[in-house]
Deep mutational scan, measured.
Amino acid sequence: IRKQWHEDITQDLRNHLVHKLVQAIFPTPDPAALKDRRMENLVAYARKVEGDMYESANNRAEYYHLLAEKIYKIQKELEEKRRT
């Protein structure tokens, strides 16, 4: 379902936000690492998460909020795993 606010969101912005999700899960300073085949699954997962939020959000603010919440949860989980 195409929503009115979707018209304001460019593909570049969506790609940028997918990249932010990927960085939250696997922070790497090396952009070449993103071309690694093992990263493809991670990028696919991040695209799916972003797509789900894009579809479920009712406006741009909610879209950003859902993504920020997801990134926060991912970082929290990773922190907890590092501690144990």
Score class of each variant (00 low, 15 high):
residue 32 A to S: 11
residue 84 T to P: 14
residue 77 E to G: 11
residue 11 Q to H: 00
residue 74 I to S: 09
residue 60 R to A: 15
residue 15 N to Y: 03
residue 61 A to C: 07
residue 72 Y to E: 15
residue 4 Q to Y: 14
residue 37 R to S: 13
residue 24 A to V: 06
residue 27 P to N: 09
residue 76 K to H: 13
residue 59 N to C: 05
residue 68 A to D: 15
residue 56 S to G: 13
residue 44 A to K: 09
residue 12 D to C: 03
residue 59 N to S: 14
residue 14 R to I: 00
residue 25 I to P: 04
residue 76 K to V: 11
residue 14 R to S: 02
residue 76 K to E: 13
residue 70 K to Q: 05
residue 53 M to A: 10
residue 24 A to W: 02
residue 83 R to I: 13
residue 43 V to R: 05
residue 12 D to L: 06
residue 16 H to K: 14
residue 53 M to W: 00
residue 66 L to V: 02
residue 73 K to V: 14
residue 21 L to I: 15
residue 72 Y to K: 15
residue 27 P to G: 11
residue 21 L to W: 00
residue 84 T to W: 06
residue 9 I to C: 02
residue 73 K to E: 13
residue 13 L to F: 01
residue 55 E to L: 10
residue 33 A to G: 12
residue 59 N to L: 02
residue 51 G to L: 12
residue 20 K to P: 00
residue 49 V to I: 13
residue 50 E to F: 03
residue 45 Y to N: 01
residue 40 E to Q: 11
residue 73 K to F: 05
residue 5 W to S: 08
residue 60 R to L: 10
residue 81 K to Q: 12
residue 40 E to A: 06
residue 30 D to N: 14
residue 20 K to T: 05
residue 68 A to F: 07
residue 84 T to K: 09
residue 12 D to Q: 06
residue 24 A to Q: 04
residue 71 I to E: 09
residue 51 G to C: 13
residue 43 V to H: 06
residue 64 Y to T: 10
residue 24 A to I: 00
residue 5 W to C: 01
residue 3 K to Y: 00
residue 52 D to K: 05
residue 19 H to C: 07
residue 58 N to W: 01
residue 48 K to H: 01
residue 22 V to N: 01
residue 72 Y to F: 12
residue 83 R to D: 15
residue 60 R to V: 10
residue 46 A to T: 02
residue 10 T to A: 03
residue 84 T to G: 13
residue 20 K to L: 04
residue 3 K to G: 04
residue 73 K to T: 12
residue 23 Q to E: 10
residue 46 A to L: 04
residue 64 Y to F: 09
residue 80 E to R: 06
residue 47 R to Y: 02
residue 68 A to G: 14
residue 51 G to N: 13
residue 51 G to K: 14
residue 65 H to N: 10
residue 82 R to T: 10
residue 33 A to D: 10
residue 8 D to P: 01
residue 52 D to C: 11
residue 81 K to R: 11
residue 6 H to A: 05
residue 49 V to M: 13
residue 39 M to H: 13
residue 62 E to S: 01
residue 78 L to M: 12
residue 33 A to K: 13
residue 74 I to Y: 15
residue 36 D to S: 12
residue 11 Q to G: 07
residue 34 L to E: 14
residue 78 L to G: 15
residue 14 R to N: 05
residue 7 E to P: 04
residue 38 R to G: 13
residue 59 N to F: 02
residue 82 R to G: 12
residue 3 K to Q: 03
residue 8 D to Q: 09
residue 51 G to P: 02
residue 84 T to V: 11
residue 47 R to C: 01
residue 43 V to W: 11
residue 9 I to P: 01
residue 7 E to L: 07
residue 35 K to P: 15
residue 50 E to Q: 07
residue 48 K to E: 11
residue 7 E to V: 03
residue 38 R to I: 06
residue 79 E to I: 10
residue 3 K to S: 09
residue 52 D to Q: 11
residue 13 L to G: 13
residue 65 H to V: 01
residue 56 S to N: 09
residue 23 Q to M: 08
residue 46 A to D: 02
residue 79 E to T: 08
residue 4 Q to T: 14
residue 82 R to W: 05
residue 21 L to E: 03
residue 79 E to Q: 06
residue 62 E to M: 02
residue 34 L to Q: 13
residue 54 Y to E: 07
